[in-house]
């Protein structure tokens, strides 16, 4: 180390990049690109705020989501009446409720805050389920190829051909009726208990899980098929790597980018599926607040009390936008074609 300057020059060999700058991993590099994307940063920030809201719902909500006050039912604060002036003849003014109260006199704001829990849980559980099942299934199919691939993909095709939402609805209806009044100690009883413990979300997870992995499996399979023909996979074989090692050490890190992007962009789909199921009454059990069931309740009185549908809908829309923005940003940041460029 007699001459540090010349050493730096040696390292600067490729492309004249001054290597005095800190060397970053590929993920660090992607993260830097993500931070330069304003929409993605806004989306990401909103998601972080939402997560905080969901986690600290007990502190943020001004009252319990199920607390009723029949005296204040369908009331609204002054500023809401200013915005929705058509409400004025029907609603009583009550400034204790920041966004108003619903037909049972429950605070809309608190219910939206607690509703974030449901939506975000779906937003994170959905991808976990579909990633685990889809990536494993797709990897096996793509990696082994041939007949295995053919059979596995035809199964996916068959499942894909069935309308997903209809499938979930049928399944939920089936589960709910099967598990409605089981005897204690049986499997169905345990499932039923678990479901009610989760506020009715268990079956929603299962419903989303059994349909969402198919897209993931197809994507993974395609990526694996493309990557396994790369020379470095052959090189890995020549040094004696096992199939498992090639799969997890060499192929998976190369395809994880597109998978993460696809999954992030699929999150709004999961959230809207949950909202839709709650909207048609198959979602979470009342009085657990879900944005979907709140919109459903609100839509019944949308002419007279538009605030009851508009605010949860707004929350839903903002959340879905945020995930879309973040997903778009991630795609740009992780796109291999942009890798190595400024």
């Amino acid at each position: 180390m007699t001459n540090p300057v010349s050493l730096k020059n040696i390292r600067a060999g490729s492309g004249g990049v001054p290597l005095t700058q800190k060397r970053e991993s590929l993920w660090g590099d992607a993260f830097r690109r993500l931070l330069r994307n304003r929409a993605a940063v806004i989306g990401g920030s909103i998601i972080i705020i939402l997560i905080l809201v969901a986690v600290f719902a007990d502190q943020i909500a001004i009252m319990h989501y199920a607390k009723q006050n029949l005296v204040a039912n369908n009331s609204a604060p002054e500023w809401v009446l200013k915005v929705f002036s058509t409400m004025r003849p029907y609603a009583q003014v009550n400034n204790d409720y920041p966004l108003g109260a619903d037909y049972a006199g429950r605070d809309l704001f608190s219910r939206i805050v607690y509703g974030a829990r449901i939506s975000l849980t779906v937003a994170f559980i959905g991808p976990i389920i579909s990633l685990i099942i889809g990536v494993i299934y797709g990897s096996i199919s793509g990696f082994f190829g041939g007949r295995v691939d053919n059979i596995m993909m035809r199964i996916v095709d068959i499942l894909y051909a069935f309308p997903q939402l209809l499938f979930i609805i049928l399944m939920l209806a089936f589960f709910r009726s099967t598990f409605a009044k089981p005897d204690p100690g049986t499997f169905t009883y345990t499932m039923s208990q678990l479901d009610s413990r989760l506020g009715g979300m268990l079956f929603i997870f299962i419903g989303i899980g059994v349909t969402a992995w198919e897209t993931m499996a197809r994507l993974t399979r395609g990526q694996v098929l493309a990557t396994r023909e790369k020379e470095f996979v052959e090189a890995a074989r020549t040094i004696g790597s096992s199939d498992l090692r090639i799969m997890f050490r060499h192929i998976l890190p190369n395809i994880i980018g597109p998978l993460v992007v696809a999954e992030t962009l699929a999150i709004p789909g999961y959230i809207s599926t949950e909202a839709f199921l709650s909207f048609i009454g198959l979602g979470v059990n009342p009085p657990t607040p879900s944005w979907g069931s709140m919109i459903s309740d609100g839509s019944a009185v949308i002419r007279t009390y538009p605030n009851q549908a508009v605010f949860p809908a707004l929350a839903l829309a903002i959340t879905m936008f945020a995930f879309n923005f973040l997903g778009d940003g991630l795609r740009d940041a992780l796109d291999p074609r942009l890798r190595g460029t400024q």
Binding site: K230, F232, G240, H250
Partner: peptide
């Protein structure tokens, strides 16, 4: 598999594509 890379190893024509870009 235990022969490859341990007792008989190989180098390839194209050093640009024979490395895993993300490791």
């Amino acid at each position: 598999r235990h022969i490859r890379g341990a007792q008989i190893s190989m180098i390839f024509q194209d050093p640009m594509t024979s490395f895993n870009p993300v490791l």
